[in-house]
Amino acid sequence: MAFELVPWRRRRQSELAWSRGGNPFLSLQREIDRLFDEFLEDFGPSLRWPSLRRRGRTWGVMVPNVDVSETDQEIEVKADLPGLDEKDIEVTLDENVLTIRGEKKEEREDRRRDYYLMERAYGSFERAIPLPGNIDAGGITARFRNGVLTVRIPKTGQEARSGKRIPVKTG
């Protein structure tokens, strides 16, 4: 089986408020990806090889992509968790840090399978997102749909208490 080359768009090198303070390994990976992109760009479109740049993954280790956005009323966190069930996802809030944990179990035990490609990531992961103090811990909701986890955190004027587990709903 052959897979074709599809050009991908170069990532915007925008400065985002929080992304620089995140996972240092992920930052390094993204920096390497960016350098790869720039290097390949010099050779023109014919040499762009998509599989060299694997979005959201650090060489087989699961590092879910996360978006965080904010309005005056709430903070929204969205994480890509394809292949997980909602029961495998744990969302906790402790000391104003929202933590998303989970494990994607290996499905590759079957010995009758001969693999041509193994690009999808497996294993356990954890991402911690620091939140401001003025959040309503009791009003946090988490929803899992089409492999994307959406956590919505309402804001209040009061300081949040620590240690809370947030149930994940489907649909």
Binding site: E4, L16, R55, V66, D67, S69
Partner: peptide, 27 residues
């Protein structure tokens, strides 16, 4: 598609609305 429901200021951006494409030549 999935636009941001909060429609607010983006603090961290690691994915974006996009098209996924892939093709395989079958044996």
């Amino acid at each position: 598609r999935e636009p941001h429901e909060a429609q607010g200021r983006l603090l961290v951006e690691e994915w974006e609305p996009c098209r996924y494409q892939r093709s395989f030549r079958l044996a």
